[in-house]
Design a protein around this nucleic acid. Structure first.
Lengths: 351, 351
DNA sequence: GTCTCGAATGTAAGCGCTTACAATTTTTCA
DNA sequence: TGAAAAATTGTAAGCGCTTACATTCGAGAC
């Protein structure tokens, strides 16, 4: 305001911003008609509509969000709580998610949980309080009270990044366990027996657990014992990946391959390998998971599991919109395919 | 909560969700008192407050966002429109921005413009329509009508990623021109004369223009002619960086250094150099800008300009909160320092 | 020409909250 | 001890919009 209000002439602008009532008066119709023009144009006669829209233009009218939300009992907003925005793991999917929502006139609110359940709960409540019509969550695992809370408030939630038909909630994602199983099978096929693993903290992270589970599955399937895994658990970050890798390399016998829970950890591991003067994959192989952009930027490029980020984001949006529209029952879960990207960091074991 | 709802008696739950009035009734006070308990607890006597908060707990009450926004005439939301979420350039700053906002009870809404002015304008209007109390924008350059619109609606805006005291709007950022000048000076000092540049499209991007300007400044200062620059303009992406680099390498004389407008382009360039069998920095040097995570993940690590992403995000949040609180006049602009990170991709010219 | 019916529009009741103002109670202090 | 000041609470008027319902009008049907 301020400036603009100094020009008295122009048009009706009693106070600051034009309201529906101002538009109605300007166009010589009732507020109901203006509202209908905006929300259900086909229910208004053409010439009336044109007059109203002209008034909207002229007054620079734009509806008040709060009022609309209050009266309509929905906000046209969906929320997403992702663990972090700091690395690129979720960026691409969220971007696609948002693009698709936008195409349907829905706004996205993003919050981060920092991989901490209590912060996630807080954020869920915050987003619901802000009127999110639906929520996108990462992973199934959370306190049942949260699901009850959402149900009570009538806020449908979709779980992404996992596919588990047995979980009680609709999801869109892939089978982390199976994907990691496949990758590990390939690793073993190349002859690796001394296998190191860098995983995210498994406690509150079902994806991380599933991925480790997949590694174990593959070992068992190959007649190996999962007990022989050299496993390090660490937070997700390049720096932690570096340190975890260094720790693994100090073990005896030294692992010939390090399977990382995601590409960020793998990038850290790769960097540390270089620093330690280890040749990849000659001295040690490294694999990641996610196939984010850095996977092909590092040298050698990272062998990893490709995840269809954009497809997941886009379809998540469609499902969520459908859930909101249809009054929020459960959609069926959707499974997306992952596939191996065999690149330079994986080779046969040394020696 | 949740559990309790299965007991029908228990407490008032006429319809679905508890309202302020329900809480008031439950606690035997007026709605005003409940409202005060939530918004200005110190204005309510301790024992009353406790009774009210107990009722809030018991009913699982959470305020209706729309109603609150409507009545209070503000939403506790600020919006940020960034060019893209697809790469990491803005991620870290936005993350810090959000963390700081959250600490003050403010919610962040993020939208992307895809570097397109018309989409940016649309997103600005959308965020304002959704009740953003203030906006964070990237770069000064945009249609003056947009600034007028914001002023008219009383929505303060802060410009980030640039520092230009002469621009008409408060900003927090750094001097892109000066920073690139310094980097280029170092490049020239090493003996480079055949300089290639990969820049983002300059038309709608004042940061890109300023960075190119800085390169020219440095050349002039060294007695070189900016006309001799081999300059390629391209969208921001790894793939475009690759192609632009290949194009530059076909020029004669071939540049001995390629200065990239940001790290993403530089990462692409570096990748292509490897692919073309060119040794970096032996055959050609490459520099970036921003110092995002990939800068140290690639090999050799990228010489670049370090930008204080997190500090910028955090301080932007503080400024914006202050602008909202103080009724939205202009804060003074804040300049942050950048500094050179000389790493492996920059060396003396070949031969 | 009258009647019926549907399309177009208007009327007005909230949606759930904040807050100015009024009413009441408690403190403070001479 | 009593009046004024301060603290606490209540009353009620909106905030700007949507929407159920009522009203009006015109076009066929008879």
């Amino acid at each position: 305001m301020s400036q603009g209000n100094d020009h008295p002439g122009q048009s009706d602008m009693t106070a600051g911003v034009a309201t529906l009532a101002d538009v109605a008066e300007h166009a010589q119709v009732s507020t109901a008609t203006v509202s209908r023009c905006l929300n259900a144009p086909e229910r208004v006669a053409k010439h009336t509509r044109e007059r109203v829209l002209a008034a909207v233009q002229e007054l620079g009218y734009s509806p008040n969000f709060g009022a609309r939300a209050l009266a309509a009992r929905r906000t046209g907003t969906v929320g997403a709580i992702i663990p972090t925005m700091d690395n690129a793991i979720f960026a691409r999917a969220i971007q696609a998610f948002q693009e698709e929502l936008r195409a349907h006139g829905v706004t996205l609110l993003v919050a981060c949980s920092a991989y901490r359940p209590e912060i996630e709960e807080e954020q869920i409540r915050a987003l619901v309080a802000r009127g999110a019509d639906a929520l996108l969550l990462i992973g199934h695992q959370r306190d049942d009270a949260i699901y009850q809370f959402l149900e009570r408030r009538g806020v449908p939630a979709l779980v992404a990044w996992v596919h588990d038909p047995d979980a009680g909630h609709p999801s869109i994602g892939f089978d982390n366990r199976k994907a990691m199983h496949e990758l590990t099978r390939e690793v073993i096929r190349l002859g690796h027996r001394r296998i190191g693993v860098i995983t995210a903290e498994q406690r509150d992270n079902d994806r991380a657990r599933a991925r480790v589970g997949g590694i174990c599955d593959a070992m068992l399937a190959a007649g190996l014992s999962p007990d022989d895994l050299a496993l390090v658990e660490t937070p997700y970050s390049v720096e932690h990946g570096r340190q975890a890798f260094a720790r693994l390399m100090r073990r005896a016998p030294r692992p010939g391959v390090v399977i990382c829970g995601n590409d960020v950890l793998a990038a850290g591991a790769l960097q540390m390998a270089r620093e330690m003067g280890l040749h990849v994959p000659g001295d040690v192989s490294i694999t990641g998971f996610d196939d984010i952009e850095i996977a092909t930027l590092v040298d050698p490029a990272l062998t990893t599991v490709h995840v269809p980020h954009r497809a997941m984001g886009r379809q998540a949006a469609q499902l969520l919109i459908e859930m909101v529209r249809s009054g929020a029952p459960l959609a069926k879960s959707v499974e997306l395919k992952t596939d191996l990207r065999l690149r330079g960091t994986l080779g046969p074991p040394p020696g």
